[in-house]
Computed example of a mutant assay.
Amino acid sequence: MRIGVYGSSFDPITNVHLWTASTIHHRKKLDKMLFLPSSKERRDKSLMSTDEDRMEMVKLAISEDPRFELSTEEIDAPIGEQYTYFTMQKLKKKFPNDELFFVMGADILVNIGHGSWVQGEKLVAENQFIVMARDGIDMLKTISKSPLLRNADDGRFHLVDKGLAMEISSSYIREEFSRGGEPRYLLPESCYQYIMQHKLYREYE
């Protein structure tokens, strides 16, 4: 099988996350897409809801699509191993006969290329990637300018540069909730209802 590993904060998961996953699944002929919520223990993340809440929202969002599956590898990891390199090592052991691709935006590619990710060099050397376009980022130039990325550019970076520039940021949705706004149709209805029921992201009450 060809499996995509879609890592994100999912704080909260949005309709664009789902649309992106579906598009990547189709274009890259994947068999499965794993949704991998970031752990709150990561020092490079500032998350506004609990791991449990974000896992539950992902479960709700993907429950009706058999192509999608929740992965809790990062959230369940011991302290110090909540990073992508360690997660991919575990997933490769879990799916030893399958081909895994870490799915990320071009902005993440820039960060890895700058050397700012934990075990970034090993991560790049030992894995394959599907990289989604982001406005204002030249993916080929990003790879060519970084020795870390350039030296590993043997076809492991699968670039998707058309039709994925639409953005609905989770931060925008959180801000709407925090100000008493109405971002209802920017995320799955089940997640909207979960957020309302559990009063997540609210600062105005």
Rank of each mutant, 00 (worst) to 15 (best):
K59R: 15
K45P: 14
S71D: 09
F102T: 08
T84V: 10
N97Q: 15
F102P: 04
K90Q: 12
F101K: 02
K93E: 15
T50A: 13
K40P: 13
E81T: 03
L47Q: 04
F86I: 12
V58H: 08
V58G: 00
D65P: 02
P66S: 09
I62K: 07
M57S: 11
S49V: 12
T50V: 05
E41I: 12
M55P: 02
Y83T: 10
Y85K: 00
K92M: 14
R42D: 09
E81R: 14
G80W: 09
S39W: 02
S71W: 01
P66C: 03
R54Q: 00
A61K: 00
A77I: 06
F95M: 12
M55I: 15
M88T: 05
A77S: 06
S71G: 03
M88W: 00
D51T: 11
R42Q: 10
M88R: 01
D76T: 08
G80H: 04
K45S: 10
F86C: 09
K59W: 02
D53Q: 14
R67Y: 02
S49H: 08
L60T: 09
D98F: 11
E56F: 11
I62F: 03
S49A: 15
D53T: 00
F102R: 03
R54T: 01
F95W: 12
L91F: 02
K93C: 07
K45V: 08
F86K: 13
E81S: 13
S39N: 03
D98M: 09
Q89C: 14
M88H: 06
L70F: 11
K94F: 04
L91H: 04
F102S: 00
D44W: 04
Y85V: 05
M57R: 01
D51L: 03
Y83C: 06
T87G: 09
L47G: 04
S39V: 05
Q89P: 10
